[in-house]
């Protein structure tokens, strides 16, 4: 018998205890209206050092350009696709596309890139979180390695709770390689419980919240 079969045989039992009802209402009852969603999202994300810049769906590219100038970002890395294209056109700094395998430019990504731009799949009001599904166009490390992560989130994509998202959006029918929930910049309190930002991931998370 293999280790697998031996372990599984020890987990067999004759009577399967009946399952308690799974009552998700404690999460699903949390319903916010549009205004509350925005307020709650903002409050929660800002409480963990996330920076939110509100803009409109029509002028987010100009807002991005302003942020890039104001923060003196000299180079910005973006993925591919319509929105990243618009972003690339709008900014005045040097632009690089994440269009090669990581093996081909790991050193550069790790040491030269100052900021990364990504879109978001959605957000969560309850916890002030971003939902990202990295893809061929917007790879996983784009939101992790650059010291500044600029994320574009459309206000209409903000859901109430994570439970609601997982119960209604059918993620289980086709999970991506990697799905992420991001709530703030990278941080640690491992040294004497003092918060420090930018431990391994970005030191700053700037969210362009487009309404």
């Amino acid at each position: 018998m293999s280790a697998r079969d031996r372990i599984l045989s020890r987990l067999q039992h004759d009577v399967i205890a009946s399952d308690n009802e799974i009552d998700l209402s404690v999460h699903l009852d949390k319903q916010f209206d549009t205004q509350e969603k925005l307020e709650r999202f903002t409050e929660k994300l800002e409480s963990v050092h996330g920076e939110i810049i509100r803009c409109s769906e029509n002028d987010w590219t100009q807002t991005l350009a302003r942020v890039v100038d104001a923060e003196q970002i000299e180079n910005l890395t973006l993925g591919l696709g319509a929105l990243p294209d618009q972003a690339a056109d709008a900014v005045s700094c040097a632009v690089r596309r994440y269009d090669a395998d990581i093996e081909d430019w790991k050193g550069q990504l790790f040491s030269d890139v100052q900021a990364g731009f990504t879109t978001c799949r959605g957000g969560i009001a309850e916890t002030g979180s971003l939902l990202l599904w990295p893809s061929i166009d917007e790879p996983r490390l784009l939101s992790l390695v650059p010291p500044i992560h600029i994320a574009l989130l459309f206000a209409k994509d903000i859901a109430n709770t994570f439970t609601e998202v997982l119960c209604t959006q059918n993620w289980q029918d086709g999970m991506p390689t990697n799905a992420l929930m991001i709530s703030g910049p990278s941080k640690s309190a491992d040294i004497a419980q003092v918060l420090a930002y930018g431990v391994h991931g970005p030191k700053r998370l700037i969210v362009l919240l487009a309404e």
Binding site: K44, G128, S129, L180, M181, S183, G184
Partner: peptide, 10 residues
């Protein structure tokens, strides 16, 4: 209320 990352790998 949430950690910085919730990372789901499939």
């Amino acid at each position: 209320h949430a950690t910085t990352y919730f990372n789901m790998i499939s």
